[in-house]
């Protein structure tokens, strides 16, 4: 039986994203965490079949909740809902490049910020401008996470051989069609 490399690659990528997200601190210029785990989960939602995408989002959600001190299932349930939305957009999305990652991740980070604040019950404590500022910052952080996360995921996929070359319609590879 041929071993599938997808699962270990997925595990390593999610672990790497968790380390990055955990170790990069908030700063005066970006007072929110950069959501690498969300961007990696999003990448796998777009590029992998149902079960593998589900596993990726569960692992990413578990790590976000466990390492962020959030209640269990907070991020997992958000990513599950996000998967539903992203899946319905699959036919509309032209490619799974870095730009797509940036746009989708920026949007998802913004919604995730609201979701988490409501879940942990701190939504009403801050003033309206404070909340708007945090949302703005989360969009910027999401865009950064999208670019970096998708770039790393594509790189790891290429190196590990998870991506197979697309078959030509006439059965002749472009590299041999001279």
């Amino acid at each position: 039986m041929r071993n599938d490399i997808n699962l270990p690659v997925m595990g390593v990528t999610i672990l790497l994203a968790a380390v990055l997200q955990d170790m990069i601190p908030v700063s005066l210029w970006l007072p929110v965490k950069i959501g690498f785990l969300t961007s990696v989960a999003l990448f796998y939602m777009l590029t992998r079949p149902f079960l593998k995408a589900l596993l990726a989002l569960v692992w990413a959600g578990v790590l976000t909740d466990a390492l962020g001190g959030l209640p269990a299932l907070c991020t997992v349930s958000f990513l599950f809902c996000a998967y539903g939305a992203v899946n319905s957009l699959r036919n509309v999305i032209y490619s799974t490049g870095v730009f797509t990652g940036m746009v989708l991740c920026a949007g998802l980070s913004c919604i995730q910020m609201i979701w988490t604040r409501i879940w942990i019950g701190t939504s009403g404590t801050a003033g309206i401008w404070y909340s708007f500022a945090l949302l703005g910052y989360s969009i910027v952080a999401g865009a950064i996470a999208g670019v970096v996360g998708f770039a790393i995921c594509m790189l790891i996929d290429n190196f590990s051989g998870c991506i197979k070359p697309a078959k030509e319609k006439n059965g002749l590879s472009w590299s041999k069609a001279d």
Partner: peptide, 15 residues
């Protein structure tokens, strides 16, 4: 100090 705020920065904590 290993981490400031964990992965969410929802709380003011360090690891």
């Amino acid at each position: 100090v290993l981490s400031r705020g964990g992965t969410s920065a929802a709380w003011q904590n360090i690891r």
